[in-house]
Design a binder for these strands. Structure first.
Lengths: 350, 350
DNA sequence: TAGAAAAATGCAATCGATTGTATTAAGCGT
DNA sequence: ACGCTTAATACAATCGATTGCATTTTTCTA
């Protein structure tokens, strides 16, 4: 290796050594201006093919990635969608809850498909500002809120001025914010009717009607019972939503109730699973002694023994709706709330 | 209402009308410079108590929130941690998988606690650059990767230069990246030993040993069988990880196998649940005819019928480790990989 | 080959905050 | 009331990219 080769080599090493972090570094290396680099990297036709190629080569030789923050600040977009879970109505409810988690996964899948990232934040609404704070932080291009909890007012207030916001949950007449959810009343009706058709005369509803959606499901149940002339035969147990908390509720109930219900309408699949387990512990056969039906259509319902009958909300489609509508709202379009058809899925527990 | 009051009122309205979006708007309103506003909002002692109060009042009167992007660009921090799920080794695996989802929820809970947001991204590693791209995008302060998939090399390569990176998964001698996970060999050993003690002589292992962690679990099983002089009595079914795909694998296996195993060691709780269901469909009692044990310690294991025995990884503690170690690495400390003790949880299926 | 049109590139403002330094105002002693 | 120290605030550079407009270079026509 002669001297000049050595020098050339050192030069090359020196080049490789330069830590290329910014567009400016690339610009210096290529002997052009930062503007040119920016355009070249964006594949702009304004830049000649030759320099474009050269700059791009340089860029991936050094593994250069433009700083997303700076870019976002300039173009006023973030490429991220915020997903908020207001944990208002039930203490101790974690993000780890199967329903949230399922919805979250589906949203993540869909958003990723559409080229967005997902910024997750659990919020415990202490005052009304939790939403506003997020909205105004400029960190996301849009917001999906999972569940209305007891925050309908806050949601309506913010929705009035901040357009890229969609909510998973129930729909009520006159609601300002754009929501996606299933027809809970109808779902409850279907569930109860199914059990009645299976020969159940006494039903129990497991779930706390204080939450909007659950209340609506209960209404549906009531209607079905009324139509069958069984209005008096429906009892309600305001069981917790969280699996660990639901189980004792249910076990207590089953242990102390006078006339055992012939059918159980659970307000969620998680509650239904707790019910299945409690029934098994009491030595009651499902569906022999008691018929059970859940609500949500979660995948785990396939894995229970017996496999869980349920009213399915088609969360996959729901997630698609949420994302697609949000993107349309971001684009400036207007959108209507979506109320999806619930679907009865009869498996083995009813 | 006299004229002057009216005017004052209009003035006030005019003020309120001005859309206060930036620190500059506030500055003008308060008649000070932007620097002063920035410091006042940060509660700096450099600013007199009086103006500080005035500015803060102004700020929340107009519901002003500083732009996070700009702030982050300036201070070179993002306040977000990226969570990546490389979906390499198994096609069709969604984020919606119960294990990911559980881990994700726990991480979200912990990160939120620590004041970080969670930026979720599903990646399908086509080439080796998926990680680098994320690392260099400057969008996050640190990275948690859930599962090594078949990307150990990539992880090692990036870990060598990018410090704030931790990985959930198995630990292998000489590994460069910092990992948190349970002692899979020991876990597999415990599971098999437990079933052997329950009187099982023929065991089946359900799970695909191509994945690092699962391979290690199988090794543990083998060792336990060897110690009991039953080396020949272990069969392996490389079942899929995904519940929907695992069930047919298992049903086929149970339908065609010659001598039925007396015990099943499943490589995950999800696989175990599929096994429970398949066994029930074949009319086999658990644990009467077949003993079953899972792996992971997921919450849903509590809700199966019969409740699932499992080797628990304490994901909660794992998530805490991941987050805490990551924060320490961000702070510049060095950290060692953590190998947690797996714990046998005997419930009703074994 | 001059001159005009077209193509390629450079320049500098901008996004919205933070922060070191310069500058002004206030406070104090004599 | 004057200089001097200290407290309070203003100024301006900065983070890293984008982009309209000005400028230079190239290409083509007459």
């Amino acid at each position: 290796m002669d001297l000049s080769a050595n020098e050339a080599n050192q030069q090359e090493n020196a080049n490789a050594m330069v830590k290329v972090r910014t567009i400016k570094d690339i610009a210096e290396l290529a002997g052009v201006s930062t503007g040119t680099v920016s355009r070249a990297l964006a594949g702009s036709e304004l830049i000649s093919k030759k320099t474009r190629a050269k700059i791009q080569a340089l860029a991936d030789e050094h593994g250069f990635r433009p700083n997303v923050l700076a870019r976002n600040l300039r173009i006023q977009k973030t490429g991220a969608i915020g997903v908020l879970i207001p944990l208002g109505h039930e203490k101790g409810q974690h993000i780890s809850d199967p329903f949230f988690i399922t919805m979250l996964g589906l949203l993540a899948d869909r958003l990723t498909e559409k080229g967005y990232d997902l910024l997750l934040s659990r919020v415990i609404p202490t005052d009304g500002s939790w939403l506003e704070r997020f909205v105004d932080s400029g960190r996301v291009d849009g917001l999906i809120v999972i569940g209305q909890s007891d925050q309908v007012e806050t949601l309506d207030k913010v929705a009035a001025r901040y357009r890229p916001l969609v909510v998973w949950g129930g729909y009520t007449e006159g609601q300002v914010h754009c929501s996606v959810g299933s027809d809970n009343r109808k779902g409850g009706y279907i569930a109860a009717k199914h059990l009645i058709e299976r020969g159940c005369n006494r039903l129990a509803f497991f779930g706390d009607p204080k939450a909007l959606e659950i209340g609506q499901r209960l209404e549906g149940c009531r209607q079905a019972m009324a139509e069958a002339g069984l209005s008096e035969k429906l009892s309600v147990l305001p069981a917790h939503l969280v699996a660990e908390a639901a189980h004792p509720d249910i076990a207590n109930y089953l242990g102390s109730v006078g006339e055992r219900p012939q059918g159980i309408v659970a307000a969620s699949d998680v509650i239904a699973m707790s019910a299945l387990r409690a029934l098994a512990e009491f030595g009651l056969a499902v569906p022999g002694d008691v018929h059970v039906i859940g609500y949500d259509g979660l995948a785990i319902g396939e894995q229970t023994v017996p496999r869980l009958s349920t009213v399915s909300q088609d969360l996959t489609q729901g997630a698609h709706h949420l994302v697609d509508m949000l993107l349309r709202r971001i684009a400036g379009e207007d959108t209507q709330s979506v109320v999806m058809e619930p679907e009865l899925i009869v498996r083995m527990s009813s």
